[in-house]
């Protein structure tokens, strides 16, 4: 790659804060480095990964609204966690966490437990239990 070929396809990197440092060849054939704002294939790959996460989250959201899955199940997806990661943050056995993913069990959780889950899922306890919030969630990127 040459200095004038460094891609500047704006994606998810933040300008002036974080960039990709690319090693490139200048016109005399010497290696140097240049900052890049992003590159199409990489931006598309990241976008696809998030589309996938959101697609799955939407399924879970429908289950929550149908009263089957608990809000924890939805926010676990949105935090890109699986049961094993969530369980280790909660310091709980996986089987317990798996139970808490069901609305029936969720309704019996103590306020302490709710607040611990909320903390791990980056929410306030009120946000975690609010069905209105879940009804209003839209899965979108800012492009």
């Amino acid at each position: 790659m040459k200095t004038d070929e460094v891609p500047q396809d704006k994606g998810f990197l933040i300008e002036g804060k974080i960039s990709d440092l690319n090693y490139v060849v200048d016109k005399d054939g010497h290696y140097t480095s240049r900052q890049s704002k992003g590159w199409m294939p990489k931006n598309e790959a990241i976008r696809l990964a998030w589309e996938q996460i959101y697609e799955h989250a939407e399924e879970v959201r429908q289950q929550v609204l149908a009263g089957k899955a608990s809000p924890i199940a939805l926010y676990m997806e949105l935090n890109v966690m699986d049961v094993s990661i969530l369980a280790s943050y909660m310091e709980l056995p996986k089987r317990k966490v798996r139970r808490h993913l069901k609305m029936k069990e969720f309704n019996h959780l103590s306020p302490e437990m709710i607040s611990r889950y909320a903390d791990v899922l980056n929410l306030t306890p009120e946000e975690l239990v609010s069905v209105d919030r879940i009804r209003g969630i839209k899965f979108e990127h800012e492009d």
């Binding site: 290696y31 990489k42 790959a45």
Partner: peptide, 24 residues
């Protein structure tokens, strides 16, 4: 396929999965 591209061009490879960095 997209996951391979993410690994190839993730933050920090210097482009093309470290190949340019090694050339340097």
């Amino acid at each position: 396929l997209s996951q391979i591209i993410r690994m190839l061009e993730e933050i920090g490879t210097g482009g093309a999965g470290f190949r340019f960095m090694y050339a340097a």
